[in-house]
Structures are given as C-alpha cells and as structure tokens.
C-alpha cells in the first residue's frame, strides 16, 4: 500500500479489476503502515489466494489516503477490522440489522457491513478512531460518557458515529426525533435514555465541530 496525499483522480483506475493473487501482501503492508497508530497491529493474511477476484480500491480513511488490492467481496467492515486493525467499528450482525458497524462515508452514516469496499472506491470514510482521541474527545464522545450512554460499550462506537450523522443530517431536533433517527442502532444493554440525552446535549457542539473540521 502507498499512502498518497492526494486522491487518485484518474477514472480508469477506479474499479480496475485485477485477477486474483497478483498483488500479494498488500493488506499486510497496509496494516504495517498503520503500525504507528496501533502498536501490535495484526499482520493480515499473507499472500494466499482468497478465491475472490481482486480489485484495486482507493479510500480515504480517517483523513489519510490508502490504496488496497482486495478480494472484491471485502466489505468496509471487514477491511477496517481484519486488515487495518481499526477494531473500534464493531460487528454485531453482518446484515444491516444492528448498526454496530456504523461509519461515516463522505460524512453520511452507513452500515459498513453491507458496503463493499470496491463500491466505496474514491470516497472518504471516518471510523470511531478518526472522530476523536482519548486526549481530545469529540463532543459527542464526551456527552456519551457524561450521560452514561452505554454500558457494555460494544454498540457505542456505532451509536456515536450514528449520533454524529443524526445531528449533521438535521434529525436531532427534539428527543422524539432523536429516538426515531437513532433507532437503527440497537443497544442491548438498554442505554437508550443516556444515548438520547447525549445526542441532545452534544448537538450544537457537534455542528460546530463539523464546521471547524
């Protein structure tokens, strides 16, 4: 993988399909490039053919451009979790039924389990790791802590990404609207009251943050 500062603009490289096995070890090197972000990043699968056709994909992930050669079946969820060690994005159902895998794609919240990485070629994705850090939390993250908007914490990254999307989409007008538009994120612990309160509390700061970044 190369981390290029610019998005590739040549349309003919988009979606260029390569035959399997041509580009070995690319996933491993993508993980290595992220090693500075997470110590002990896992080495992804080596050069073994995975059976699927491979495709070249460029994605901006949390602000940095990445290029991959991937099995075409790879979803954004599998890509970030299994190949980039960005494990904040959670897998809860793999079928678009729970929202645990919610990320922002070009600023819009989606279920990363149902989006092929190939179909997101050229686009920009933000995962929970790109939202805020432990030292500098996004206001939505702070509000989730303050309002105890989680218990086990497993659905939380998805809830928070969804909450940011909910606010920027303009669907955090009142509590009833927040509840409706946050209903795509299941929380089995039942932290909904804290979640709703957190979204309401962080709404204005989230809009400010979005403008500032």
């Amino acid at each position: 993988m190369t981390s290029s500062p610019e998005r590739p603009s040549s349309p003919d490289r988009r979606g260029r399909v390569t035959r399997r096995g041509l580009l070995k070890g690319t996933a491993a090197s993508s993980a290595a490039a992220l090693g500075s972000y997470r110590a002990g990043a896992q080495e992804a699968q080596g050069g073994d053919p995975s059976g699927g056709e491979t495709v070249h994909v460029q994605l901006t992930i949390n602000g940095a451009s990445h290029e991959f050669t991937l099995d075409v079946r790879t979803t954004l969820l599998d890509l970030v979790r299994e190949q980039m060690d960005l494990t904040g994005t959670k897998v809860g159902c793999n079928h678009g039924q729970c929202g645990a895998c919610t990320v922002l794609l070009d600023g819009v919240r989606i279920n990363s389990c149902l989006m092929l990485a190939a179909a997101a070629d050229g686009r920009s994705m933000t995962t929970i790791e790109g939202l805020g850090t432990q030292d500098e939390l996004h206001p939505m993250q702070s509000a989730f802590i303050e309002n105890d908007g989680f218990q086990c914490g497993y659905c939380t990254p998805g809830q928070i990404m969804s909450a940011v999307g909910c606010v920027t989409e303009g669907h955090a007008g009142d509590e009833a609207e927040i509840r409706e538009y946050m209903s795509g994120n299941l929380c089995r612990c039942g932290a909904y009251k804290g979640i709703t309160n957190a979204v309401a509390q962080a709404r204005d700061d989230t809009l400010e943050w979005a403008e500032a970044t």
């Binding site: 929970i128 939202l131 989730f144 989680f150």
Partner: peptide
C-alpha cells in the same frame, strides 16, 4: 468510558 467511546 474513554476507552469505550473511542473504540479503544
């Protein structure tokens, strides 16, 4: 809390 809201 910080670990959970950052995905860490």
């Amino acid at each position: 809390g910080r670990l959970k809201v950052t995905g860490d």
